[in-house]
Design a protein around this nucleic acid. Structure first.
Length: 267
DNA sequence: AACAAGACCTGCATGC
DNA sequence: TGCATGCAGGTCTTGT
């Protein structure tokens, strides 16, 4: 489930249990996540205190007062539950349990086990993965000019470019579809067509930047659930929600993933 | 270097 | 009912 808004909401959920608290006991019930947890994973956390709980793109960044950093990614199916200690009953897919000095227990559940937990010594900028992440779409550094530089010369589609975490960090399949619909841009359009030959943003790129911010901000604030949560995602065959459009949402496959869009109003 | 396709793993909805 | 198929919101690796 997790794209940037869901990860940010997870961060806020975990903060009360983890921030300024110590890992009293860590239980690894299954170590074979996307990458196997090292055998000393629990021992390296126990006794450590959380200085701050941050987020970068879809990664949760747990800074410890020791200087080490616990980096976590939810993959496709990861989630956390917070409850009062002690937890006696576990689900099959409860893989990692943090008993914190706050008196709260944090349980990581992940049926598909695409999630990641890694303990890093230092500096995220030098990390082979985190160091290559592109702009945070809700940060002030993100804008039409920086996005223009990133899209310049890209022959790939807008859908693929916006899904690329090195270009914009935090969008996934849903919010790429939603942002493109809001910006009235076709997911099949070539990414470089939003940039002039000299590398300046075309007007449509300003619209896209606003649309990206809007869909993420809205997802963070509303958090309504149910069928009408998205305007195009998973709505194949339904009417386009844009006033006066009258188009029908289509599903196509791009780079092996579903794309939903309105062929009438998205050009 | 840029890009597309395949792989990883489990659960669920669908159709026969 | 059982079984097969296809699909799922991510990203790493492989191949052109």
């Amino acid at each position: 489930m997790p794209e940037l808004p869901e990860v940010e909401l997870t961060r806020r959920q975990l903060r009360g249990a983890m921030e300024a608290a110590r890992f009293e006991n860590v239980l690894v019930r299954r170590a074979d996540l996307r990458y196997p947890l090292p055998r000393d994973f629990a021992a390296r956390l126990e006794g450590r205190t959380v200085r701050a709980l941050k987020r970068r793109a879809k990664y949760l960044i747990v800074e410890l007062t020791s200087g080490e950093i616990l980096v976590m990614h939810l993959g496709m199916s990861g989630s956390f539950a917070v409850s009062k200690a002690p937890v006696g009953q576990f689900d099959n897919h409860d893989h990692v349990v943090f008993n914190m000095s706050s008196g709260l227990t944090v349980v990581y559940n992940d049926p598909r086990r695409f999630g990641v937990m890694r303990l890093l010594d230092g500096d995220l900028a030098r990390d082979p993965v985190l160091g290559k992440l592109g702009a945070e779409p809700l940060a002030s550094t993100f804008g039409a000019h920086s996005l223009a530089m990133a899209l310049r010369g890209r022959k790939t589609t807008l859908k693929a470019a916006l899904s690329d975490q090195r270009i914009v960090a935090g969008l996934g399949n849903i919010y790429v579809c939603e942002a493109l619909h809001r910006a009235r841009l076709s997911p099949r359009r070539r990414a470089s067509t939003l940039v002039t030959r000299t590398g300046a943003p075309r007007p449509a790129l300003y619209v896209l930047v606003k649309a990206i911010r809007a869909v993420l901000t809205e997802a963070l604030s509303k958090k309504r659930s149910g069928a009408d949560r998205f305007r195009v995602y998973d709505r194949e065959g339904r009417r386009c929600p844009r006033r006066g459009c009258g188009g029908t949402i289509r599903r196509i496959v791009q780079n092996g993933r579903s794309t939903f869009y309105c062929p009438v109003c998205q050009r």
